[in-house]
């Protein structure tokens, strides 16, 4: 773990709001990006998520962890409106998301990546990012067909923005490559770039480090912090790599059987006996990693 991250973690203090909030101190005066209240969804008779309360601050990096099948991805799908919640409400930047669809959720500032990579694999890397810029750099279909000045101007703008975004991960030279032909780690990074291109205020990362080697994971951790600092956005991530979660997440929320069983900073979560029993205690190898962390 790099020194900067370690220091950042030490600086971040828990805010004494016992009920639901794990907002870092610097975000206290600002409106939270995300506010979930009593969120729940049933699939037939199965309750996948129940009474999910969470507040994510404006520039917070939040972690969502839990054993397999705990409902983490379902929460992401609820936030991005893939599913309509059965109960409760979600507020994004103070706006109630009731009745919105995925497209509206994206326009209101929620961007996500997927657990199983979903790139436009037949298209070039640059085109993938340009598609992410779809609602940011706009021109109409007539200008496109008739090649009006707006087309040339906006295409150049798209190209510049795409290259700028790709350069975050040092991928600006891969613009012409086919997205599907990239190595696995690069595909994950491209998905993050594409999500960033939609100009989000909350970035949801579903297992961003899956399939990455320790070195790549380390780089990813630095990059997530860099993204947060540069774009001033909140990041929420699902991850099984405890090094990553404990290393960069300022607030961690533990989910088991669709319910939140603990919330707090990395240290608190590591000490929490319920978490250890429900999650870490069952998986010895993760528990060992825990030990080295602390």
């Amino acid at each position: 773990m790099s020194e900067t991250i370690r220091r950042r973690n030490a600086d971040t203090k828990m805010v004494p709001v016992p009920s639901r909030s794990i907002i870092p101190e610097r975000d206290l005066g600002k409106m939270p990006v995300l506010e979930c209240q009593h969120l729940g969804i049933d699939f037939g008779g199965l309750t996948a998520v129940e009474d999910f309360n969470l507040v994510v601050g404006k520039t917070e990096i939040a972690g969502l962890i839990g054993p397999n099948g705990a409902g983490k991805t379902t929460v992401f799908n609820l936030l991005t409106k893939v599913y309509e919640p059965t109960r409760g409400s979600v507020m994004i930047n103070g706006i109630d998301m009731h009745g919105m669809d995925t497209v509206a959720a994206s326009r209101h500032g929620i961007a996500r990546t997927f657990q199983n990579i979903r790139l436009f694999s037949n298209m070039s890397v640059e085109d993938n990012v340009r598609i992410g810029l779809h609602n940011q750099v706009r021109y109409g279909m007539p200008s496109g067909i008739l090649r009006l000045p707006a087309y040339w101007k906006k295409e150049r703008e798209q190209h510049e923005k795409a290259m700028e975004l790709l350069s975050i991960f040092g991928m600006q030279d891969m613009g012409d490559m086919q997205a599907g032909s990239l190595p696995y780690g690069a595909q994950r990074r491209l998905e993050i770039v594409r999500a960033l291109a939609t100009n989000p205020s909350l970035l949801l990362l579903d297992e961003p480090a899956a399939g990455m080697n320790p070195h790549e994971t380390q780089e990813l951790m630095d990059n997530i912090i860099k993204i947060r600092d540069q774009f001033q956005i909140a990041v929420m991530l699902i991850e099984h790599d405890m090094n990553l979660v404990m290393g960069i997440c300022e607030g961690i929320c533990v989910l088991n059987y669709g319910k939140i069983i603990a919330k707090g900073t990395a240290e608190e979560i590591q000490r929490n006996p319920i978490v250890v029993e429900a999650y870490l205690g069952k998986q010895k190898d993760v528990g060992e990693k825990e030990g080295t962390e602390a």
């Binding site: 991005t80 893939v82 669809d101 995925t102 497209v103 994206s106 961007a111 996500r112 997927f114 979903r118 790139l119 436009f120 694999s121 037949n122 298209m123 085109d127 340009r130 598609i131 992410g132 779809h134 609602n135 750099v137 706009r138 021109y139 279909m141 200008s143 496109g144 067909i145 087309y151 906006k154 295409e155 798209q158 594409r194 999500a195 291109a197 939609t198």
Partner: peptide, 20 residues
């Protein structure tokens, strides 16, 4: 053009296209 890329995005991956 922008429109065409959006059309191809819906072809290649509908869920991802909606998510952006």
């Amino acid at each position: 053009s922008r429109t065409g890329r959006a059309i191809m995005a819906t072809r290649d991956n509908r869920i991802a296209a909606e998510s952006v």
